[in-house]
Amino acid sequence: MQSIHFISGLPRSGSTLLAALLRQNPRFHAAMSSALAPLVSANLDIMSSGQEVSLLMEESQRPAMLRALFDTFCRTTTEREVFIDTNRSWCAKMPLIADLFPDARVIACVRDVPWVLDSLERLFRKNPYENTRLFGNDGERATVYSRMESLARHNRLVGYPWTALKEAFYGEQADRLLVVDYEILTKAPEKTLRLVYDFIGEPWYEGHDFDNVEYDAPRFDEALGIQGLHRVRPKVAFEPRRTILPPDLFKKYEHMDFWRDTAGSRANVLATKRATREDTTTA
């Protein structure tokens, strides 16, 4: 089986950019979220207690079945030697990953939560003729306040990966986790990428081009009704900007960056000091 690692973390925090950079290496496969994590969750569900299938299986068959699923998915997706899969849920599956793949590592891309929400709000406003599927009804999408509240709930686009990351950060497998701040990645892409290579135990690839990065998924974004969600700019760069969120709303979600305090965690962290009301434009 190919070597396997995972990208997870918060949305609008550089995970697509990181995947786009890694895939420049001809040995690596990396992309936006794939079907792998949902397939794993579905199989776990059908094999778990309370399901008829669980009565027809031995306990030892469960990990074997999941390893076969990973192996089949990776081999039929690419022949490249290193498979790096992206999904927000991997941080919530650290014990499973550690048991199935002892050498696997998880890279979690992060960004201060107000700036994650700011980035999503910008995309929403760029698509004024579309009721994006990011919101379930007119009440949720009514104003910037209802939109941000909806996204920040524990089971939604921002709240879920935030809580999953916090679980991984303080969990038993935290030493398998590398937290990468978006500002670090965009300001020092080569240095950051070299540290990622060291973390996953792979030799450095000299062919990385930080001025010509390519990735986009227009069909997927159109299906969600929000264009540009997975579009990466060609040049990796840090671009300061002012937030479009009202001051009270921005302040409400400040200081949720628990990863800047590593006390009580064995996670590896690449992060800057606390951000001000100026930040970078998401790739």
Rank of each mutant, 00 (worst) to 15 (best):
Q24G: 00
N25G: 00
N25E: 07
N25L: 02
F28R: 00
A31D: 15
M32Y: 15
L36A: 06
L39K: 06
N43I: 07
L44F: 11
M47I: 10
M47V: 08
S48A: 14
S48E: 07
G50I: 01
G50K: 10
Q51A: 09
Q51W: 14
E52G: 10
S54G: 07
S54C: 09
L55K: 12
E58T: 07
E59Y: 11
S60Q: 13
S60K: 15
R62I: 15
M65S: 13
R75D: 13
R75G: 14
T76Y: 10
V82N: 06
F83K: 02
I84Y: 02
T86W: 03
T86H: 10
S89G: 11
W90E: 04
W90C: 05
K93F: 15
K93S: 14
L96Y: 02
A98W: 05
A98H: 11
D99V: 08
F101H: 06
I107H: 02
R111H: 03
V116P: 00
D118P: 03
S119L: 01
L120S: 02
L120Y: 02
E121N: 07
N127G: 02
P128Y: 01
E130V: 14
N131P: 13
T132L: 04
T132Y: 08
L134T: 01
G136A: 15
G136I: 15
G136K: 10
G139R: 15
E140H: 05
R141I: 12
Y145P: 09
